[in-house]
């Protein structure tokens, strides 16, 4: 039986720890600073320019999210359980009247709260700046992209926790997290481009392979929300609009939710069943 009070206590502790974590603060300040700079350096004048400024700032924020948020989510998640296991703190925690599922879920929710704080700061700073400039055209669309950024952050956090469950050492978990980050941000795209050129894949296949990557899901969903059209993606965008029409955005949202839920469930299952990976050392 899951005890919500235990989950709440663990989540509160994790949130407090994350907000005191030096690296988390550096990431958050950098993200918020860059988001603020992006919005501040766009100086709109006239109605049309204001609209362009909003789209440009929101699109720049999407690119910023693509770099920063996965890195924060993956590193926060991967260092968590592995770090506790390495120091021995996890054994002591598990000796308390808590279940392993409560421990993992509590920790996850705490870090999810920390991630939310980062995004609220970044998107909030940029949003306030745009509002002051009078360039924010549609607060609803802006908030939707912020929500998408949060979903992709949670997906990366889930993957980070999965790595943390599998790795015995923090360094290994962090190494895995950096590899995944590089893969999703750079290598994945390059791989698809190379495969497409060498194997002459049809455009539909290219699109489906691309959207397996949660970052691509976030990017395409954000473009749909901000511009209501995928023309900027070229033939793949046209194909997607033609094939899926209005169902594309819900499909992408569902995809992101699956990227959150499936790795998290896998992490919970492994954490609950792989005893050898839970303890620091055998007695």
């Amino acid at each position: 039986m899951i005890d919500l009070a235990n989950i709440r206590a663990l989540a509160a502790k994790e949130l407090r720890d994350a907000l005191r974590n030096r690296w988390f603060i550096v990431f958050t300040v950098a993200f918020a600073g860059l988001a603020l700079a992006l919005s501040a350096f766009t100086q709109p004048s006239g109605m049309q320019m204001r609209a362009m400024s909003f789209s440009r700032t929101a699109a720049s924020l999407v690119n910023l999210v693509l770099l920063f948020v996965p890195l924060i989510g993956l590193t926060l998640g991967s260092a968590n359980l592995a770090g506790d296991r390495e120091t021995g703190a996890l054994t002591y925690l598990l000796a308390q009247p808590v279940s392993r599922t409560e421990v993992l879920v509590g920790k996850y929710l705490g870090l999810a709260g920390a991630l939310l704080a980062t995004l609220m700061l970044g998107y909030g700073a940029a949003g306030v700046t745009m509002a002051l400039q009078g360039s924010i055209q549609d607060a609803g669309r802006y908030l939707l992209t912020a929500l998408l950024a949060y979903l992709v952050g949670l997906a990366m956090l889930s993957l980070g926790f999965l790595l943390s469950t599998l790795a015995r050492k923090t360094a290994v978990a962090l190494g895995g997290a950096l590899f995944l980050w590089l893969f999703f941000v750079f290598i994945g795209d390059l791989g698809i481009m190379g495969t497409t050129v060498s194997m002459h894949l049809p455009i539909g296949t290219v699109f489906l392979i691309a959207i397996i990557n949660p970052l691509q899901m976030f990017k395409i969903a954000s473009i749909l929300i901000l511009q209501a059209s995928l023309d900027v993606l070229g033939p793949a965008g046209l194909y997607a609009t033609d094939q899926f029409g209005g169902a594309l955005l819900p499909m992408l949202l569902l995809g992101l939710l699956l990227w959150i839920v499936l790795p998290l469930l896998a992490a919970i299952f492994l954490f609950s069943h792989q005893e050898g990976l839970i303890l620091k050392a055998r007695a």
Partner: peptide, 12 residues
């Protein structure tokens, strides 16, 4: 109530 050989506490 459990007391290990060396207790690793969180930074609090």
């Amino acid at each position: 109530g459990y007391v290990p050989q060396e207790t690793i506490f969180y930074d609090m």
